[in-house]
Design a binder for these strands. Sequence first.
DNA 1: CCCATCTATAAGTTATGACTTATACATCGG
DNA 2: CCGATGTATAAGTCATAACTTATAGATGGG
Lengths: 106, 106
Amino acid sequence: MTYTSALHALQDPTRRAIIDRLRRRPLSVGELAGDLPVSQPAVSQHLGVLRDAGLVTSRREGRRRIYALRAEGLLPLRAYVDAMWADALAAYAASFGADGNQGGRG
Amino acid sequence: MTYTSALHALQDPTRRAIIDRLRRRPLSVGELAGDLPVSQPAVSQHLGVLRDAGLVTSRREGRRRIYALRAEGLLPLRAYVDAMWADALAAYAASFGADGNQGGRG
DNA sequence: CCCATCTATAAGTTATGACTTATACATCGG
DNA sequence: CCGATGTATAAGTCATAACTTATAGATGGG
């Protein structure tokens, strides 16, 4: 839901592997588990983290549960990175000509 | 240097606290440590992680070492998030009218 | 209802990493 | 050179979280 939970969720390699597979199309838990080197419960646990972070949604389909990427969930992280980018550039520019004369541009 | 190291670096709350302070202006290790609830060695360790991830740069200034944000270091993460965003939207759109008729919009 | 299939949760193990204190390394002043 | 200041590294402790197996919960078919 926030950028911190997104960072936490995306930091794990297994969760990124799940995300990478969902980037093509929605998949069931079993399909994901069959294609990853971890057990099905591990996949379910990771999906729970991704869901709490707002990065995936799920729907029932008979006995299966289909998970899909949720684009909206990326917006907080994107906003954080963009703001940090802007501040980094501003701080860099300000370091020339603030209280201390740090030297010329370049 | 890559988006994975950026994700790893930004996942930690203390490292984000460091980043947040550097968003205003470059700071020395001592200035950072004095404003954070962890020891100076902990700050140095975190700065090493941030440096390895390409998110900060440093320069000597007498006996002190000044750390500053490095905007370029955010580009890989930004590209990853953007690509994921695009794929998420595409996968969502494709889920209407692919092999299975998944139902209407909503 | 009963069984098979699919997913989520429980409980326990283990590797990782964030922290500490102690100390080495580097720079400046006397 | 010697001490003070500032930072990085070393070594060890401890909490977290990613994994396992076992099992509970939910759905569909005979």
